[in-house]
Computed example of a mutant assay.
Amino acid sequence: MDDWRAQRERAVRAHAAAEERRRADEAAEAARLVVWFAAEADRRGLRRTRLTVQPHHGGGRYRSRLTGWYVDRARRRAVDARGNFYLLAVPPSLRARLFGADPQPQPAPLIVGQGGRDGESIPLRTLLTRRLDAGDDWP
């Protein structure tokens, strides 16, 4: 019985370690893609824009000090010139409405929208490539 329990615990630890390695590999690949996008956008001369932030609930947009490129049409995801990825949604607040909001960089997902309620997801590489191909003709 103790052998079985010890073997099971080893298997669970090995599985958890493998999952952690997979997540780290995915995060590193996504980070490389975002840095590539920023460099390629600069190389192609895509115009940077002042990014705005949306409240999680409710309407309106908040100013931010960030400049970069929106990478989705909803303007909820963006990349700055240093290759940082941002989710441009924050909790609603009077302070953000008055003084603006400055979200922190987030790890980029390899599959954008995965697990979302609408079921629409897209590989990060595809999303970034579409944005580059659209050039400055982006809404």
Rank of each mutant, 00 (worst) to 15 (best):
L33W: 11
A78P: 03
A17V: 00
R10D: 05
T126K: 12
G119A: 06
E20C: 05
P107M: 08
G113Y: 00
A134R: 15
A38I: 06
G83T: 05
D118R: 11
L66C: 15
V79W: 02
L46V: 06
T129K: 15
G58M: 01
R117V: 00
V71Y: 07
L51Y: 10
A108D: 14
R5G: 00
E40W: 04
W36D: 11
T49C: 12
G45C: 13
A18G: 09
S93I: 03
L124T: 08
A38V: 07
V112L: 12
T129G: 03
Y62C: 10
L88A: 09
A134G: 04
E40H: 08
R50Y: 03
F99I: 00
R63E: 12
P109L: 12
P109W: 06
R50V: 13
D133I: 02
A14N: 13
P55S: 06
A41N: 09
Y62R: 10
P123K: 12
P107W: 04
L33A: 12
L94F: 04
G59F: 01
P107D: 13
A30H: 08
G45L: 13
E9Q: 11
R77H: 15
R75I: 01
A16Q: 11
V90R: 06
D137A: 15
R32V: 11
L87W: 04
R76N: 03
D25E: 15
P103Y: 11
R77L: 15
P105D: 09
W4P: 01
A134E: 10
G68H: 10
Q104N: 03
L94V: 06
E26L: 14
P103D: 07
R22S: 09
S121H: 05
A14M: 12
G83D: 06
D133K: 10
R82C: 02
G119C: 01
A14K: 15
W36I: 10
A31F: 01
R73P: 00
V79K: 00
G115T: 05
Q106A: 14
P55L: 03
F37G: 14
Q54P: 00
W138R: 14
L128K: 11
P123M: 05
G115F: 01
D42N: 14
A96P: 00
L94M: 02
R48F: 03
E120F: 05
P109G: 08
I111F: 02
R32E: 15
P103C: 09
A6M: 10
G100H: 07
A96M: 00
R43P: 04
H56Q: 04
V12S: 05
A28Q: 14
A41H: 05
A18M: 03
E29Q: 14
V112P: 03
R32D: 15
R125M: 01
R48K: 13
W36S: 10
A108W: 07
R131I: 02
D3M: 07
L132P: 07
R32N: 12
Q106M: 13
G83R: 07
T49Y: 04
A81K: 13
A31K: 15
P123T: 06
A28W: 01
R95E: 09
R43N: 09
R44H: 08
P91W: 00
A134T: 11
R76C: 03
E120I: 00
R43W: 02
V71K: 09
I122F: 02
A24P: 00
R47E: 11
R95A: 10
V12N: 07
F99P: 04
